[in-house]
């Protein structure tokens, strides 16, 4: 028998290899875990410019009075409400709209729009507000000086300043008094190939009003849906090119 000719492996060795393979599969069950590990971005690897994360908000599916996305965000990032709503941090909020002409009522969530040309990034004096290569706009909590200029510049009122001392922060959501923060698109989840908490909660609630994905992947579900339905970006006249698109406005 020629060395390396597996077609003629002795029965004992063949069984051994097969059982080892089976054990490997069983140890990673369910199979999703294998896929997770393959797709997740390894720690230390930079975000890729070949991806642009974005979201489609289907307002025709968003239910007025449903706060599943807001609650999921608060739980995920440890956002606690106080008795002074004007100073509470809100990374995502439900907005109720009434068309001034037709009287049509719409309910939709508003969060950081993760703009391509983000005004918050442009005005930040220290560069603490920054945009990752994959389009996610974040605040570096270590270099934010709390000047709030980004809040003045944001056209979507998407940022919050922390007015009080915080305790019990989540390890994946560094937050602190005197700095500005906003929706991170749950970057800690996205880097592990998971959806943002708000999207997951909306789907779990049975509404499926939020669809998250890669805007630059033409074969992906998000890009496909954007091609099928009429959508618009908030204040598109400002030329910020948000990553969040709305259908039904």
């Amino acid at each position: 028998m020629a060395a390396g000719d597996t077609s003629t492996l002795p029965r004992r060795e063949l069984l051994g290899r097969a059982s080892a393979l089976a054990g490997l599969v069983v140890s990673f069950a369910p199979g999703m875990r294998l896929i997770d590990l393959a797709a997740a971005k390894p720690d230390g690897e930079a975000a890729s410019a070949e991806v642009r994360w974005g979201m489609l908000v289907d307002t025709t599916r968003c239910v007025s009075g449903c706060d599943a996305c807001v609650n999921a965000c608060a739980t995920e990032h440890g956002l606690e409400m106080t008795d002074r709503p004007e100073i509470d941090a809100q990374w995502i909020r439900k907005v109720d709209l009434i068309d001034e002409d037709s009287g049509k009522e719409i309910s939709l969530p508003v969060m950081c729009q993760h703009c391509e040309d983000a005004p918050c990034v442009a005005v930040c004096p220290t560069g603490a507000s920054f945009r990752r290569e994959d389009g996610i706009v974040l605040v570096n909590q270590h270099t934010c000086i709390g000047c709030r200029y980004c809040m003045m510049a944001c056209p979507y009122k998407a940022r919050s300043f922390i007015h009080i001392n915080l305790t019990g922060q989540r390890t994946h959501s560094p937050r602190g008094k005197g700095t500005v923060e906003s929706c991170t698109f749950c970057v800690h989840r996205v880097d592990r190939d998971r959806e943002p908490a708000c999207v997951e909660a909306c789907t779990a609630a049975g509404h499926q009003a939020l669809l998250f994905g890669d805007l630059s992947d033409n074969e992906g579900e998000l890009a496909q849906r954007l091609g099928e339905v009429q959508t618009q970006q908030l204040r598109s006249d400002l030329g910020t090119n948000p990553g969040v698109h709305y259908h039904g406005l």
């Binding site: 442009a122 005005v123 004096p125 220290t126 005197g178």
Partner: peptide, 22 residues
């Protein structure tokens, strides 16, 4: 009036030159 006045050294050593504030 800054949220983090203790980080003044960041403001005078780290610049984003797109910012009018900088």
């Amino acid at each position: 009036d800054l949220g983090r006045p203790d980080r003044l050294q960041v403001a005078i050593t780290t610049y984003n030159f797109r910012s009018i504030f900088a």
